[in-house]
Amino acid sequence: MASRTSCLTFLLIVAAAVVPLAVHGNSEGDSLYALRRSLSDPNGVLQSWNPNLVNPCTWFHITCDSNGHVTRLDLGNSNLSGHLVPELGNLEHLQYLELYKNNIEGTIPAELGNLKSLISLDLYNNNLSGVIPPSLGNLKSLIFLRLNDNRLSGRIPKELTDISTLKVVDFSSNDLCGPIPTSGSFQHVPMGNFEKNPRLEGPELMGLASYDINCK
């Protein structure tokens, strides 16, 4: 009886040690699986995304660091459609979010502003609409921000000019309006990276743009 009790105690100790690891690993997997559920995937590129695994590091198109945290999501040019999900903001170690050249619709979740480790945000060549979230100004490690060739509207958030690391910005071919920021990290962004936004206002776009007091 004593032996059986000791064995049971040992198993409980092991379980207590393992469960937190499983929950920790699954938190990122749950967030990514929420994205999978929101997307249509006719080519089966997300087939390996199995929610029953302890963590998503074995899934295709996912890269993890040595600690098992998700650092890259590479799904560019994958013929995906559907919507982005706010759960993506839970991937606190994510450095690269690559979803370019798909057919993703809807808005950019404000929760992406929680991705403090993000270096590259590439959502270009989709069908995204709505405004650019000012919360993206919280991405203080961001170097690449490419949102061109979508259907985004509203103003370019001034908060983005405070990202000192930002080197590559492209907002061309959208429906943005209001003034083009020219301070901070936007000082050296070529005007061509704002073109094909008929309602944008800027020195080199004045001939094409019209002042829109109702820009939202």
Rank of each mutant, 00 (worst) to 15 (best):
M1N: 13
R4D: 14
T5Y: 14
F10N: 09
L11A: 15
L11G: 15
I13N: 10
I13Q: 13
I13F: 15
A15T: 15
V19W: 13
V23R: 10
H24Q: 14
H24W: 12
N26E: 07
E28L: 01
S31Y: 05
L32Q: 05
A34R: 12
L35K: 08
R36K: 15
D41V: 08
P42W: 09
S48P: 09
P51K: 05
V54A: 11
P56G: 07
W59M: 05
W59K: 04
D65R: 00
N67K: 09
H69W: 01
V70I: 05
T71L: 00
L73F: 03
N77V: 11
V85F: 10
L88Q: 05
G89T: 06
N90R: 15
N90M: 08
L94E: 03
Q95P: 01
Y96G: 04
K101G: 02
N102A: 03
N102L: 07
N102I: 01
G106V: 01
T107S: 14
I108G: 00
E111I: 01
G113L: 10
I119V: 07
S120I: 00
S129Y: 05
V131A: 10
V131E: 05
P133I: 10
P133A: 08
P133W: 12
P133V: 08
P134H: 09
P134V: 04
L136Q: 05
S141G: 11
S141M: 12
F144I: 06
R146H: 14
L147T: 06
D149N: 15
N150V: 01
I156G: 02
I156Q: 07
P157M: 02
K158I: 14
T165C: 02
L166Q: 01
S173R: 14
S173G: 09
S173E: 10
D175K: 06
P179C: 07
G184Q: 03
G184F: 05
G184E: 06
V189C: 07
R199V: 09
E201T: 11
E204F: 09
L208K: 13
Y211F: 14
